[in-house]
Nucleic acid binder design. Structure first.
Lengths: 283, 283
DNA sequence: TCTCGACTGGAAGATTCGTTCCAACTATAG
DNA sequence: CTATAGTTGGAACGAATCTTCCAGTCGAGA
């Protein structure tokens, strides 16, 4: 939602900006109103820089001083104002992007609204249980989201595993499950047979199962101890897993909240490891 | 569309306005941007009145001079500028789920609104190019989303690869890139150094690069041919990649649209393979 | 360690802007 | 026709803002 004109120029000047100028540029992108309505001093304060730096940035971007930059932002904002009011009356989304936007907003909204607090708390409690092992099982279509969940949970606790690989490997892993383990199964309509069967055999072994699926009528829901439903409507050829990922984020945040002490310790250790190898960069 | 605050006051003072003041008030209602962005002189000229009349009107409306009137209009305009339409419906943001809901809705909304049609078309064209190979490179935190994208694209076309594994493997793969290839790099702030360096060396080899990142000021944006920005605000400990996934879905849908014939053929073959092994179930 | 260059923010100067004052103008009542 | 109250816009004043200049600071390289 930042103005296109200035965003374009900032992107072009990206490499030639000094640190202080970069701070100002970030504020310009993130808070355009401050540029449109505010003054040089306001921007400078928000960016923790001097007024001169603000003016220099404007010049570097090709504008005629801060006045030129401000005029550009005002123009962009004004053009965003009219259509905004008119689009509200007209919910019809003609363009492809707008159609996707509606689908995805609806997926997120439907998925999270359907999530009940008690169900969430129950699942989180199991995922945060200290001595259990967590296994994530996913249909092929949602494999990436499942990996995302595993990765996030691994940053918070040990013993989180994705059940994948070939059929033999999965069967071997499932045979090793303990009754104290937790299984998260993610699969939507057009269910993968092997996923269902794997989940069923795990359940038969006494593993506590939570299903993340598209309907309470799903075969997954039939064998799970808890079922969380997701919306996956899409404007494209495949199901959208945006709602699923949003749900995963809520679960992960819940686990992080429960494991605050251990998790922060874990994160700190990871952080210091990154620091020592300087494998992360801020800019 | 006119700001409620001033409209209210103008309506209240309706009868006590002089002719010239009335002309100014009309302009204020019909062209609020002129008040928000302009000066006393601008308003006076638009209303064919003197500057003093403008100031007098502001005082009559109960504002502290023109400055007060302008501040009021700016405030109203700024509130109309945000995607407040979705937030207002939400009753409150007290519970954890509601907070996540707001974050994720905003991520999706901001990300897809920032997507320009021409940029989308350009990226889709490259991703759908017949003879090129597509490589996806991702930071650790967005690994799952990257895999999701690779999986979806693989359902539509050949030669889509995720650049991962150990450092040596990645370097080997990068060294094999051709100038006709396409590289999709996904990484957000706290950029993984190896991702940036890998992308840079690929770019040096003439590979067409698209960056999916959180800001135009990202180091990725500096070296990419195209940059798509995503919003990743989160109520949890980690960045949310919901917006990124939504963007990926739009890209995938675009590619599917371009490759309709080949893609449907591909999907049909996959479908029949599933059918023959009955590896998918409807219920 | 020293030098040179780039970067940065404070301060002065120039400009614009908001406010106020007041003379000119208009309309209405006597 | 005249006088008075109300209205209006130009002009001056003071405040705020933008711009420019410059000395201090930091870091890289010799």
């Amino acid at each position: 939602m930042p103005p296109v004109e200035v965003a374009e120029r900032i992107g072009r000047a990206n490499t030639s900006l000094t640190p202080a100028e970069r701070r100002v540029a970030e504020v310009v992108l993130e808070r355009p109103q401050l540029v449109a309505f505010g003054t040089v001093a306001d921007l400078a304060e928000a960016a923790s820089s001097g007024a001169a730096t603000v003016v220099r940035l404007a010049g570097k971007l090709g504008y005629d001083g801060f006045t030129g930059l401000q005029a550009s932002v005002q123009h962009s904002l004004a053009s965003q104002l009219r259509p905004a009011a008119e689009r509200i009356r007209e919910p019809a989304a003609t363009d492809a992007i707008g159609r996707h936007l509606q689908f995805e907003l609806d997926n997120v909204s439907t998925t999270l609204r359907a999530l009940e607090a008690v169900a969430l708390a129950d699942v989180v409690a199991h995922l945060a249980a200290p001595k259990c092992r967590v296994h994530v099982l996913s249909g092929d279509a949602s494999n990436g989201v499942a990996r995302q969940m595993v990765g996030d949970l691994l940053a918070l606790r040990d013993d989180v595993h994705l059940l994948d690989g070939n059929d033999v490997a999965v069967r071997r892993k499932v045979s090793q499950l303990r009754s104290s383990d937790v299984l998260v199964t993610i699969d939507l309509r057009r269910y993968d047979r092997w996923v269902i069967e794997t989940a069923r055999s795990a359940r038969a072994g006494g593993v506590w199962c939570v299903a993340i699926t598209d309907s309470l009528l799903s075969p997954l829901a039939a064998l799970a101890d808890r079922t969380l439903t997701v919306a996956a409507a899409s404007g494209g050829p495949f199901d959208s897993h945006v709602g699923t990922l949003a749900l995963s984020n809520v679960l992960v945040a819940g686990v992080a909240d429960r494991l605050r002490l251990q998790a922060t310790d874990r994160l700190d250790r990871a952080e210091s490891a990154w620091q020592s190898t300087s494998s992360l960069m801020d800019r």
